[in-house]
Nucleic acid binder design. Structure first.
Lengths: 242, 242
DNA sequence: CGGCCTGTTGAAACTGTTCAATTTGTGTGG
DNA sequence: CCACACAAATTGAACAGTTTCAACAGGCCG
């Protein structure tokens, strides 16, 4: 059982080393822990948030909607990530943020966080790296949706989950509880749920993955990685402050 | 005719107000102006750049490739933008950057720029805003490619060009020289050049746009905007430092 | 003039969608 | 513990949007 402060410190230290007084400053940040149910909205497009959330447990996602209500999930947010980095410097949200699972958050006023970041270069650089990595994931998803067929796309998302789950210690990388419905998978991949279902089945009958309910296990990582053309470079996993 | 320093200062002042000594610092940054031909690579995936470029004139783009050589253009870069923001904090590039047109650049060593940004909060915030806006554009493109049909997609890109050209004073917003071939448009939209051709033709015969060679003019902005579902919020145009 | 890149057009093929029905799983209340 | 309700998963068949392949036209440059 670790405190909020410890988790936030661990987050920053994963990318840059902190001074003792930086840690002390983090301890004084007025985090408020809150738990929300799955599918609760944390933020809606057009809103002007005043607080910034750090995910302690659970998964969230960013989505955008077309005018006729079709949805695109543009980002998946895991424990140990700040969900509102862009709201540190942009007034108006350009997308919705919604809880995928039940979620435990540590919230802090934006002004307090911004002051801290400005007073602590190491923290600022961690924030920079995180924001840039998310943009890099956006770019990989653009390639995925724009230029790969449904099978590769889905395999790619499964590979990304596997790697990101491992690094955020959400579970075994090779056998994890798939947190999304097939409809949500489709919305993340620009596919219909029907087609997601068929492709999942085909990946299973071809022996790349196994499924039991929502539990997905990677059976043949090399072949899954190859059909996905998965290369984890875009996740910048080892990136620390230079 | 304005100097490099003046253009960079104007860039920063569009998002935050600078002190006199900030401007003085900018003047001491060792920018080197360079011109490169269209389709020259500025950076390749996997490289570790040491310099950061500011676009003085011309257009560039970011691309990613699949293993069998298919391309996705994930971002368009206009005059007045820093092209290597992510390389300020990420060691290894996750994509290629290529000149779309002939390009005039002002290059500066990354270390110098990073030092400057750290010593000048207003500049740092401008960089933050720019990086976050680019991520926002990525998200809109994900929605565009993932959930809209070819006609809306193309209309959306034309609307975005129109607005961004206007703000970067590259030409009349309603009649501009389309800087991309139909193949490049397809690569930005996840479409084949053949289909781009057909959709452009259909937009023209329906009276939404007119074409003369590469010159595109918007004939019916309201209808173009509606078929694109274009809402410029995601560009965060008025965003200045809070 | 010749070569090459870009744009244009047609016809066939295919990937993924749509619609609709059925099954499975899960939680709730009696 | 069973019955019911509801969300999610599954399957089939017809359909649509986009791709593929192939051929040709136009314009620009050496």
């Amino acid at each position: 059982m670790s405190t909020v402060t410890e988790q936030v410190i661990r987050k920053f230290e994963s990318r840059a080393s902190l001074h003792a007084d930086d840690r002390a400053k983090i301890a004084t940040l007025p985090f408020k822990v809150r738990t929300i149910d799955a599918s609760t909205y944390m933020l809606r497009e057009g809103q002007r948030p005043t607080r910034c959330a750090f995910i302690l447990d659970g998964i969230a996602y960013r989505q955008k909607l077309t005018t006729n209500g079709e949805r695109e999930i543009v980002s998946i947010l895991m424990p140990g990530e700040f969900v509102d980095l862009q709201n540190l410097f942009l007034d108006e949200s350009d997308h919705d943020i919604q809880a995928l699972t039940r979620l435990t958050l540590a919230e802090v006023p934006i002004v307090a966080l911004r002051q801290f970041v400005e007073s602590c270069p190491a923290a600022g650089q961690t924030m920079w790296i995180d924001a840039l990595v998310e943009a890099s994931i956006h770019r990989e998803w653009l390639l995925n949706i724009g230029r790969r067929n449904a099978r590769s796309r889905l395999a790619h998302l499964l590979c990304e989950f596997s790697v990101r789950f491992k690094t955020s210690t959400l579970g075994d990388a090779m056998a994890y509880e798939l947190p999304m419905t097939q409809e949500q998978l489709g919305d993340a991949l620009g596919l219909t749920p029907v087609h997601v279902n068929r492709v999942l089945k085909s990946l299973e009958t071809d022996g790349l993955i196994a499924r039991k309910k929502r539990q997905v296990s990677v059976i043949d990582w090399p072949r899954l990685r190859d059909t996905a053309e998965f290369n984890e470079r875009y996740l910048h996993l080892g990136q620390v402050r230079r």
